[in-house]
Amino acid sequence: MSDEESQIIRKAQRGDRQALAQLLQNHYSFMYKYLLKLTMDPALAEDVTQDTIVRCMEKIALYNGSSSFSSWMITIATRLYIDRMRRRSREEEWIRREQGIRSIRWRFEAQGEEWSDVLDALSRVPLPQRIALLLKHYYGYSYSEIGRILGIPEGTAKSRAAYGLRQLREELKEDDEG
């Protein structure tokens, strides 16, 4: 963490709202992009981003520097998202996921970007495995860090990431065949 950032964090922790706004602005883009990949639903990603900002404000005093600020934010965002999903039924989750992926697909077409089946496949990987998969293989966190983010043992994080990757491959193979 840079000196400048830790200075902003300290200011924000002392209640300097401008410093906090600056800090959140610096990390906004990273967080939105993370949530978009996690949720595969642009509207939901937006909502959870807002929730995360509010929660970060409430909890900023509890941030103790034992992890980087961005992974602290990822922890908060992930838990808020999991909480939301917990409140939903499976059917609701399925419908929302289809809607989300459809709107992303539509956006790809509108911008003339080539669609990638891997995104379809990713959205079908169950949530716990998907989170671990993303954190490990896209963001490059270690298993112990993932464990800390999700509040699970290191071994569980490892098996979830492995299982998630395996499932992603299965989904891709099915896409190829079907």
């Binding site: 959140l24 602005q25 610096n26 906004y28 883009s29 939105y32 992009k33 978009l36 642009p42 990603a45 937006e46 992303i104 956006r107 790809f108 911008q111 970007e113």
Partner: peptide
């Protein structure tokens, strides 16, 4: 594709 939404 979602670069615009990610602008803080």
């Amino acid at each position: 594709v979602y670069a615009n939404e990610a602008v803080p």
